[in-house]
């Protein structure tokens, strides 16, 4: 059984090597043009040689060349792939990957409650499975055992991490130029927000991710990306005493008296500005009295992809509208 599998992997590698030889001879032929038209960075350059990239688990992952058949196991991965122009190389995606709109047209490989359809993944014959922190180590191991190449893109803890992830995805897919351009663009927007804030007075903010239990809503404390967004947008997280995600007691919240309440809006969230303001006991909070209850698209925040910058800008606007008029 094992040798049978190995044969098959070699087959696949042989096919690809053949493809690369064709590409390489074509490449030699067009070398002259390339020298003349240096700006021609266009589609995934199959010319690039073997790659070795370190993934989020510290593993050295080797590729024969940039990946051309990619299965993405997380919405953030899918968004990054499409954002740097590698969308056409994505052959499979997890069920939740719904952005951009073209991503929905790519074949889904399942993932309900995290259950992956290994059979469907294998049938797509990918040369790279782009996994994320939500991929269980057991699933990675089993995909590796089936001869698949997996690469874990770790969740960034700050914007630098996001830029690095974009560069990494660029390298894996042969879109290094677009990735660098996108990263530079995003960096400029983030720095613009930081510069706009200067050393403005910070406003107290409460960020709610789930209010199913109004007497103890779920929030994001220290160490979360939401906490970072609040800080960069000139706010002060009233839940910074909580480590990671957690529930905050309504009594605590009333004492902290946030000036702004931001809540995640998206699938599974039923909270509205009105329903939040009408919760018993919440009418005493300054943010509710001042009508400063603001929704933010939860997918921008929860998916550690390029739209984190959209989230930062939205947060800045929510906390300091006066600076943006």
């Amino acid at each position: 059984m094992q040798s049978r599998l190995r044969d098959r992997i070699f087959d696949r590698k042989a096919e690809r090597t053949h493809l690369q030889e064709v590409a390489r001879s074509l490449g030699l032929f067009s070398l002259a043009f390339a020298l003349l038209l240096t700006a021609c960075a266009a589609p995934a350059d199959l010319l690039a040689g073997p790659l070795q990239v370190t993934d989020g688990l510290g593993r050295e992952i080797s590729l024969e060349g940039p990946a051309v058949r990619i299965v993405s196991l997380a919405p953030s991965n899918t968004e990054m792939l499409f954002a740097i122009g590698a969308g056409s190389q994505v052959v499979g995606r997890d069920e939740a990957s719904d952005h951009p709109a073209q991503a929905a047209e790519v074949a889904s490989i399942g993932s309900t409650f995290g259950q992956l359809n290994t059979e469907a993944i294998l049938a797509l014959d990918p040369d790279l499975v782009l996994a994320a922190d939500i991929t269980a180590p057991e699933q990675l191991q089993s995909m590796e055992a089936l001869g698949l190449t997996t690469f874990v893109l770790a969740n960034p803890s700050d914007f630098e991490g996001l830029y690095e992830n974009l560069e990494t995805v660029g390298e894996l897919t042969g879109h290094t130029v677009e990735a660098s351009e996108l990263a530079a663009n995003l960096r400029a927007r983030v720095e613009n927000v930081i510069a706009t804030m200067g050393d403005i007075d910070r406003v107290a903010v409460f960020y709610e991710i789930d209010g199913s239990d109004p007497s103890a809503p779920w929030t994001t404390g220290a160490g979360t990306f939401q906490d970072l967004l609040i800080e960069l947008a000139g706010g002060e997280n009233v839940a910074s005493g909580i480590q990671g995600w957690g529930q905050i007691d309504i009594e605590q919240l009333v004492i902290q008296d946030p000036e702004v309440i931001v809540y995640g809006e998206g699938p599974f969230v039923v909270t509205t500005v009105q329903s939040l303001s009408e919760r018993p006991g919440w009418d005493g909070i300054a943010a509710v009295q001042a009508g400063r209850v603001i929704p933010i698209d939860t997918n921008w925040v929860d998916r550690p992809g390029p739209r984190l910058v959209d989230a930062l800008e939205a947060m800045a606007r929510a906390l300091h509208p006066e600076l943006f008029d």
Binding site: F113, G114, Q115, A136, Q139, S142, A145, L146, G244, W245
Partner: peptide
């Protein structure tokens, strides 16, 4: 919470490990 997803995945049906 970082392992929540893995835990839920295991509880509802194991990891579909594949292989012998």
């Amino acid at each position: 919470t970082s392992e929540l997803h893995r835990a839920v995945t295991w509880m509802v049906g194991g990891f579909a490990l594949g292989g012998w």
